[in-house]
Amino acid sequence: MADIAMAQTGGKPPTLHNATEAYLAMNRRKRMYGGILLLMFIVLMASGWRISEERNAGDFLPGVSQLLDFPSEVLSEAWTNRANLPGYFIEFFPSLIETINIAAVSTLVGALIAAFLSLLASRGIARWPRMIPVFRRIMDALRAIPEIVIALVLIYVLGGGPVPAVIAIAFHTGGALGKLFSEVGENADLKPIEGLSSVGATWGQKMWLGVIPQVAPNWLSYTLLRFEINVRASAILGFVGEGGIGHDLKLAMQWGQGRYDQVVAIFLLLFITIVIIDRISDHYRAKIVKGN
């Protein structure tokens, strides 16, 4: 199962009397390839870490000893000001809602884009079968552009606020979900579509009545998973660009000492939200897939 496929390129098929020999030879070859791969991997990893350490501002070992300095500094300050935390929870709650809204809207819009593109890019159900490669490349391109690129450019054009982040995440989601959606779509049973064609249904009707009901559970499951990812992405985009709780976190961090209680409040809000959303999405995905 896990064999390295290169090992299969053997010579002639073994006859009965030299089967043992051939097996052992194959085994040796496999081990050799495995060993070479392992060695290459170790060399790559070791030299990679060396280069990255050289190009880093701080070295690894001194950094490890300082690893807990910052968290402990932050936590001790927050602990002395712990009375402020509930107030901060309330203060930052609207930004948290904004972050979640950004994730939710972009997931919805992205899923719509993905649904549309994937139906056009799935073999067997596409509207224009010749155009399948075109729609696939569109999805690849959407997936390839990192969110931050679109978001930062759009912030420059549209000004701040959540809309650049929504558009950026929605684009990326459209590409990423589109690929997964079309894999589900290609495995859909084509009989309902044939049935619908026989009664003269249009392409839209065939999709809506013949394909969507089949793929809906899996699509929903992927969309929920994506929502989880997008909540994180929207927090990060806030930190790098603008909008939502990530931005508040950046402001509090830039202020540094004296506002670490805010930093901790935001950390906690973000942590709790992510864990809750993870749990909900895990629960529903298990239910959806089992119900399928």
């Binding site: 990255s52 880093n56 910052f70 976190l249």
Partner: peptide
């Protein structure tokens, strides 16, 4: 805890850079 927060904590300890 999420990648964002790990990134912030780590960059305090190790400074900016690929490592």
């Amino acid at each position: 805890v999420d990648g964002l927060i790990w990134t912030i904590i780590l960059s305090r300890a190790f400074g900016p850079g690929p490592m």
